[in-house]
Amino acid sequence: MTIQITPAGTPMPDALAAEDVEIIPDIDEPWLPAIMSVETGMPTAAAALGTGMLGVWVNSGRGPLEAIMIGLLAAVLVILAVIDWKILRLPDPIVLPMYPVFGLAVTGGVLTGAITGTAALTAVISMAGTVVILWLVAFFTGGLGFGDVKLGGILALVCGLQSGYAAALGALILPMVLGGVVALPLLFLGRRKHEFAFGPYMVAGALLILLLPDVIEPISRGAWMH
């Protein structure tokens, strides 16, 4: 954000008087006001903390590294869902740093034996494949934003540590299904140009896999593969 004050040399009875200070959100960070207010920020922070702790607890059997990764991602996803819902944007300053953070975590996990090489390779391939698929959808249809593409790669990377199938479910299939539940009625109502935030559906799909690791994937395999 930008703070404007009366220029130096201008008479100022009170150096930081309220009338002399104006806080203006940066043009490059229009998402900040979406979560800076008390009525939005406090519930969002509480939900993010609770979801993150649940992610760690549910996945504790996968080892501390993966549990912490999932808990951190789950908490950030709640914040991203709120921002996207309010301003239709997934900000790069939140999404992009997750690539080196989780990339280093996976690398460290492989080096220490906390993550198997097979799981890491599956996660990386899942990430790359998801980014390509979502980029093609965004480029040729315009139905997705490129913020969705960037987020999809992270979802696939972390879900892919469980399996490639879990990555497909969490980053592609479930978000598309959940988003379609909303998009199809809009089409039938003739609102083809209506914009809606796809990020929350991506978050919901990923959280179903991350917070219910032994429920959603087995059920889907039983329903579709037998």
Rank of each mutant, 00 (worst) to 15 (best):
residue 139 F to I: 00
residue 12 M to A: 13
residue 122 T to W: 03
residue 54 L to V: 12
residue 52 G to E: 06
residue 189 L to A: 15
residue 42 M to Q: 08
residue 171 A to D: 10
residue 182 V to L: 11
residue 114 A to R: 02
residue 98 M to G: 00
residue 28 D to M: 12
residue 210 L to F: 06
residue 98 M to R: 01
residue 28 D to Q: 10
residue 192 R to W: 09
residue 12 M to Y: 11
residue 25 P to W: 05
residue 17 A to P: 06
residue 98 M to L: 15
residue 151 L to I: 10
residue 223 A to M: 15
residue 218 P to C: 13
residue 113 G to T: 12
residue 221 R to D: 01
residue 24 I to W: 09
residue 135 W to K: 05
residue 128 A to F: 09
residue 22 E to G: 04
residue 100 P to V: 14
residue 139 F to W: 14
residue 57 W to L: 11
residue 109 G to Y: 00
residue 164 G to R: 08
residue 35 I to H: 01
residue 135 W to V: 00
residue 179 G to M: 01
residue 110 V to M: 05
residue 175 P to R: 14
residue 201 Y to M: 11
residue 182 V to S: 05
residue 98 M to E: 01
residue 11 P to S: 12
residue 115 I to W: 01
residue 88 L to H: 15
residue 68 I to G: 02
residue 102 F to L: 07
residue 97 P to D: 10
residue 25 P to M: 11
residue 108 G to D: 09
residue 93 P to W: 08
residue 104 L to E: 03
residue 164 G to C: 08
residue 141 T to H: 11
residue 119 A to R: 00
residue 87 I to W: 09
residue 36 M to L: 13
residue 118 T to V: 15
residue 17 A to Q: 14
residue 176 M to L: 15
residue 116 T to C: 05
residue 27 I to Y: 02
residue 139 F to H: 13
residue 96 L to A: 10
residue 141 T to G: 08
residue 50 G to W: 13
residue 177 V to G: 04
residue 96 L to G: 02
residue 207 L to T: 06
residue 142 G to S: 10
residue 42 M to P: 03
residue 36 M to Q: 02
residue 21 V to Y: 07
residue 108 G to I: 09
residue 80 L to A: 08
residue 188 F to E: 06
residue 29 E to R: 14
residue 10 T to Y: 13
residue 58 V to W: 07
residue 167 A to H: 04
residue 14 D to P: 01
residue 102 F to I: 13
residue 38 V to G: 06
residue 123 A to F: 08
residue 64 P to E: 07
residue 39 E to P: 02
residue 143 G to T: 14
residue 197 A to C: 08
residue 142 G to P: 03
residue 91 P to G: 09
residue 6 T to M: 08
residue 126 S to Y: 03
residue 210 L to V: 14
residue 158 V to W: 03
residue 99 Y to E: 06
residue 219 I to G: 01
residue 206 A to V: 14
residue 72 L to V: 15
residue 74 A to K: 00
residue 25 P to T: 07
residue 175 P to I: 10
residue 37 S to N: 01
residue 178 L to C: 05
residue 156 A to W: 08
residue 159 C to W: 09
residue 16 L to W: 11
residue 171 A to S: 13
residue 82 V to S: 01
residue 160 G to H: 09
residue 143 G to V: 15
residue 100 P to W: 03
residue 194 H to D: 13
residue 20 D to W: 05
residue 55 G to L: 11
residue 153 G to F: 02
residue 173 I to M: 05
residue 24 I to N: 04
residue 131 V to H: 06
residue 215 V to Q: 06
residue 48 A to E: 08
residue 114 A to K: 00
residue 179 G to S: 07
residue 79 I to W: 05
